[in-house]
Design a protein around this nucleic acid. Structure first.
Lengths: 259, 259
DNA sequence: GAGTACTCTATACAGCGTACAAAGTAATGG
DNA sequence: CCATTACTTTGTACGCTGTATAGAGTACTC
């Protein structure tokens, strides 16, 4: 397998081997294996990788760091997972599987259920910042992915959608949540990495911005931009954007269902 | 300046220098400069970088590649731009500035105007795939960014929104478009890099997926998943997702404006 | 007891952004 | 006119990445 120089994508490895790992087929039958017994497990590798990525994003997730975390040399990891791509598939399925999924109550409105799904996904993304860095295409069809999909489709019961529209609606809601979470995480990361708050950044730029804030050339932009900046403490208020957007999403879906 | 190991972010460099470059302050006054005359211009560097990134994404955009494209050595570029972060700011502002912005007609409905803005941004993202890879926080306040913001705010005239809500609405629409564009570009990239179509990928996985597609364990998921896969040719139909989502977005905004 | 399948380690590679030092060039100040 | 100075351009070097490859040691099967 050639060295992956590009972005991290899901679903990149050998299908059979990846699925075997996802459903943990080999874990129950270590009988009659030659050679030294393995000192670790796939789960231990995945958990170490999750700890690193949760704390420092995909940049912090290097095979060397995972190995060091586990007290082995980097190449040892390759006896547990085929490569980094498959490790990411396992991480993704693991965090999906561990999500909280309180059962929907029969009398609950679809708005309440969809809001719960959105909130849960927002929490997921904010707790695992590496998720938004991942290209999730051809998702690894493990227990976590399937369980999550099954549960979330259930939230749209009562909206009067056919199966295709139901899938579209879920994709739409999840896209909205991921988009907002990404913006929030990006803002956090920039604030951390630049060691400069939004306010400090603004103070450094404002004196130089006569042209950009030219009211005669950009009347709407300068007026609305200032109103927005004044309304929220910083330049970007993620919480507000989420609440505003979710209300729009729900209203848009209501119009679809004719409710 | 330390080597940037992380993701590419906008707004990372020295404010004064970056703004000077964005508004092209030094370009008209090359009088009395000692040393050899420069063989290139900032614009030439930006255009070369754009050509590379448009064709191959952020992975293809290396300082070495830009230099080779221009027939100089990599370090030569650092006399034109302070570093890669500032080059990305210039690229971003440049593509924003070059967007098509047909004037809104007075009798045009807000739905038509917002649809035009969404379409233009979709075209922008699909034509410049590296945009979705960028962390756009603290956007470089150059002419492109300001002109785009000014124009797009105008699309929400007639919806009855105050300034703060107008900014939120625009953020919401742009987030939706970027989210969909990212999904589409990710799907394209994976298809290209894996040299495997979605259909081929599915054919390779399906025989092994008895567990994942277990109808008793995942009744909704297997039924809806199959309906969606059948309805669209591939696993993900970006065009459909965009049209479906944009209709929801507009309906959601209509409910906000009370229209 | 020989063979074998396995685990784990050590070394190596190409490519990244850019710091640093050196070499060459043109305008300036005496 | 020439030494100085500011500038452009180049070459080299560093630490980092995922993982190919080869070798050393271990525990099972025949």
């Amino acid at each position: 397998m050639a060295a992956a120089k590009g972005k991290s994508s899901s679903g990149a490895g050998d299908p059979a081997r990846t699925l075997e790992l996802l459903w943990r087929d080999g874990s129950a039958a270590p009988a009659g294996r030659r050679g030294p017994r393995q000192g670790l497990t796939v789960d231990a590798v995945v958990d170490a990788a999750l700890a690193l990525a949760d704390a420092g994003g995909l940049d912090a997730l290097t095979m060397r760091a995972v190995a060091q975390h586990l007290g082995v040399t980097p190449m040892t990891l390759y006896t547990y997972v085929p490569g980094k791509a498959e490790l990411l598939d396992l991480m993704l399925d693991a965090v999906f599987l561990r999500m909280d999924r309180p059962p929907f109550r029969p009398e609950e409105s679809w708005r309440s259920r969809v809001t719960a799904v959105a909130d849960a996904n927002r929490t997921l993304h904010l707790g695992h910042p590496w998720l938004v860095e991942l290209r999730i295409v051809r998702a690894p069809l493990g227990p976590g992915v399937m369980t999550k999909y099954e549960y979330e489709l259930g939230a749209f019961e009562g909206l009067g959608l056919d199966d295709v529209a139901r899938d579209s609606a879920l994709t739409y809601v999840l896209g909205f949540v991921q988009s907002g979470a990404r913006a929030e995480l990006d803002a956090r990361a920039v604030e951390r990495e630049s060691a400069m708050s939004d306010g400090e950044w603004w103070d450094a730029h404002e004196p130089l911005l006569a042209r950009a804030l030219d009211e005669s050339r950009f009347p709407l932009a300068s007026r609305v931009g200032e109103a927005a900046a004044t309304a929220y403490a910083g330049l970007y208020d993620a919480e507000h954007a989420y609440r505003f957007g979710l209300a729009r999403v729900l209203d848009g879906l209501a119009a679809l269902g004719g409710i």
